[in-house]
């Protein structure tokens, strides 16, 4: 349903995303995990056609048979919000503070010509109820600031799914929330996917959150794919040194007094990354080849773009 092929994004000649390819089936959830600067949010914006003006995207983003990168802004509007919904990390910035939440949900429906205002408001109430907002008929006339962070994120979800899109892009939707609220939102997103058949592209920096929501995971670093595969397999026996490093750096499961194994150094700015593998320089297994040539995919239990992958178990 969604196929991204050789997506390249550049900013004044500096590559932000390098030859990224992945696909997503109807009703499937793909987790995209990466640290800051990995290009995970840019990938989402490229799919939505919302890249900042200075960035150029090449390659293909094929959604339901159409290459979205070929479409102009007017044509893209038919997809944005309608066929592809999106939710962000901070719902407060995505919701208009001066409008009631019901109106904001209804507006999307009216805008896409799906129903008239009265019907849209009724639908908004139903949607709020659907995303688990208690007393929805009263809450439709609330303003965003009257809601808690978790409730706002529910409103965002209601808005994103109002036109019954076939793809939902969720960019760090729970990172600003408390763990107990996060857990509820993750459950909601899973239910919606299963019941409405919405495919979900779930972007997060948190491997544990991804583990909970997505069957397949794609690991990004420095704008390039590092490793992809079944989430369980990838977490249990990662083959790419970066994935391995990321897991080893987590304190979870480390007993007190033992040392963590951080990845040395820090993420360099995009323009200082090696033309080959972007992880070169911080990678314990890297050599000269890695610096100069983009590594080919190595297919085993998972797919790892690496010259020296670990053997899968």
């Amino acid at each position: 349903m969604l196929r991204v092929e050789n997506l390249r994004i550049t900013l004044r000649g500096t590559p932000i995303i390098r030859n990224l390819s992945f696909s997503l089936d109807r009703g499937e959830a793909l987790g995209v995990v990466g640290e800051s600067g990995s290009g995970k949010s840019m990938t989402a914006l490229a799919i939505m056609g919302l890249l900042p003006g200075l960035m150029r995207a090449e390659g293909k983003v094929i959604f339901e048979g159409e290459n979205l990168l070929d479409l102009d802004d007017d044509a893209m509007c038919l997809y944005r919000g309608r066929r592809i919904g999106m939710i962000f990390q901070e719902p407060m910035t995505a919701l208009n503070p001066v409008h009631q939440v019901g109106d904001q949900i209804a507006e999307t429906l009216v805008l896409h010509g799906l129903m008239d205002r009265v019907a849209a408001l009724r639908e908004a109430t139903r949607l709020l109820d659907r995303v688990g907002i208690e007393d929805a008929s009263r809450r439709v006339s609330s303003y965003p600031h009257e809601l808690s962070g978790g409730q706002r994120q529910r409103v965002m979800i209601a808005m994103a799914m109002s036109c019954k899109p076939s793809l939902l892009i969720a960019d760090e939707p729970t990172s600003a929330l408390d763990v107990t609220v996060q857990s509820e939102i993750l459950d909601l997103l899973r239910d919606l996917r299963l019941q409405e058949g919405m495919a979900t592209l779930f972007i997060s920096h948190d491997l544990a959150v991804i583990a909970r929501i997505a069957r397949r995971t794609l690991v990004l670093y420095g704008g390039a794919a590092m490793e992809t595969g079944d989430t369980g397999v990838l977490l249990k026996s990662p083959r790419h040194p970066y994935t391995k490093g990321l897991l080893a750096a987590l304190p979870h499961g480390h007993s007190r007094g033992t040392r963590l194994s951080p990845i040395p150094g820090f993420v360099p700015a995009a323009k200082h990354l090696a033309p080959g593998c972007p992880f070169h320089g911080r990678c314990p297994r890297g050599d000269e080849t890695c610096a100069d040539f983009p590594p080919p995919p190595s297919f085993e239990a998972t797919t790892a773009w690496c010259f020296h992958p670990e053997r899968g178990s």
Partner: peptide
Amino acid sequence: LDVSIQAQILNLLS
């Protein structure tokens, strides 16, 4: 902080 950096700072703190 990013996960890989978190571990550096936690090690430093301990």
